[in-house]
Write a protein that binds this DNA or RNA. Sequence first.
DNA 1: GACCAGGCACATC
DNA 2: GATGTGCATGGT
Length: 225
Amino acid sequence: MRNVLLLYYHLLSKRFGHRGWWPAETPFEVCVGAILTQNTAWKNVARAIENLKTASVLDPFKIYDMSEEELASLIIPAGYYNVKARRLRNFIVHLVENHAGRLSSLFNSEVSSLRSELLSINGIGKETADSMILYAAGKPIFVVDAYTRRVLTRHGFISEKATYDEIQDLFHAALPADTALFNDFHAQFVAVGHHFCKRIPQCDACPLGGLKNSLPGASLGGADR
DNA sequence: GACCAGGCACATC
DNA sequence: GATGTGCATGGT
């Protein structure tokens, strides 16, 4: 599995180049984006974040002082705006009331305890927590998202029923705990998912297309781990 | 007009 | 623990 994943990374980074990724200017913006992008196309999230910037409220204390309704009205383009306003507020309230609004304080702990802390906030699940840890805190944890799952499923690596933790463990077991590697690898999955692995997979043009169905029975629990 | 997009919590069985 | 459902906009 290790070799296969490294081969994937090699092929993807050769095709797409180094991504060095998450489209945000600050760690706080990453956290906001991580919540807003839940089950939502990034283009819509970008509009919502732009609204927050235009209103000059992309700041923990500013959002803390806003009503949930006011916040919701600014993030309408991201969809699910009522639930997301509540989730965003939950995160901000935790940040302000437990860490004086400072991400450096929130992030000043080991990956596992930081993850537990984030998961304890209502509205932050595994992917959202891991995105914040990797892309905002800069700590090594592999983010499993719809693109990752789709590509691995289509290539027969994992069953449709594989859980988040099982997929994440594949990467953690196979790769060194390297923030830059995890960052770029996940970004490559997003890129290939975006370009070639949508509703109708264009496997012929995909840099991984030639590998599809041609790999040895690598799968969860396979021998190559 | 149907289907989909970088989830998550909650209800129900 | 597995499965179903609500949440909502904007692009294809």
